[in-house]
């Protein structure tokens, strides 16, 4: 069994995350504690091998912060909406299952989009077709074709935001061209 070597750059996000978790668990961010945490992180990453995640190596913090804020706003608004639906509409709510083809074919992007979509109340990933990178969403209170189209547009815009944060250069170029057209 030959393992594909993972370059340090590819592994770095995982290592940083593990060190942060270590520091948070001990609630101690002194250099010594972080150093020991880094040692443990390397050890854990070597011993418990996971298939490498294909990262593009880009991470645009300027796009990430507004995206996170927008995400929080959407979660808050949609939580209230689901609350209202539960209290008022209740058993008479109509939903639909919508297929949304995504632009990106990278596993990481599809997963991230699915996560964000699932976290925003009112939409839920039921099934993923990896070969065509299509998400099948269950949308709450989506009954007319216009609402289906709205949901689809929203998912595509979230994917565009994620690509701007950490997509590959080709995808970014595709987004730019789409926006220009």
């Amino acid at each position: 069994m030959s393992r594909r070597r993972i370059s340090l750059r590819q592994e770095l996000p995982l290592l940083v995350w593990l060190v942060i978790v270590w520091g948070a668990l001990w609630q101690d961010f002194s250099p010594g504690s972080l150093l020991f945490g880094a040692l443990l992180a390397v050890l854990v990453a070597r011993m418990f091998y996971l298939p490498p995640v294909e990262v593009s190596g880009r991470f645009n913090i300027l796009h990430a912060v507004p995206f996170a804020l927008r995400f929080l706003g959407r979660v808050a608004a949609a939580s209230v909406e689901v609350m209202y639906l539960a209290a008022v509409r209740g058993p008479r709510v109509i939903s639909s299952v919508v297929a949304v083809p995504l632009r990106s074919h990278q596993d990481l992007m599809v997963t991230a989009t699915g996560h964000v979509i699932s976290l925003i109340p009112g939409s839920l990933v039921v099934e993923v077709d990896r070969s065509t990178s299509t998400l099948y969403l269950h949308g709450l209170n989506v009954s007319s074709p216009e609402e289906v189209e709205n949901l689809r547009r929203e998912v595509r815009s979230i994917e565009a935001g994620l690509i701007r944060i950490m997509g590959s250069r080709e995808e970014l170029e595709a987004i730019r061209q789409e926006a220009a057209a």
Partner: peptide, 23 residues
């Protein structure tokens, strides 16, 4: 409330898992 009032499993799931994130 959503768990009790929504009619089927998938719509209950919306109510059950999402408001917890904000909560």
């Amino acid at each position: 409330v959503g768990l009790l009032r929504f009619p089927d499993l998938l719509s209950r799931m919306h109510a059950a898992t999402k408001p917890q994130v904000l909560g």
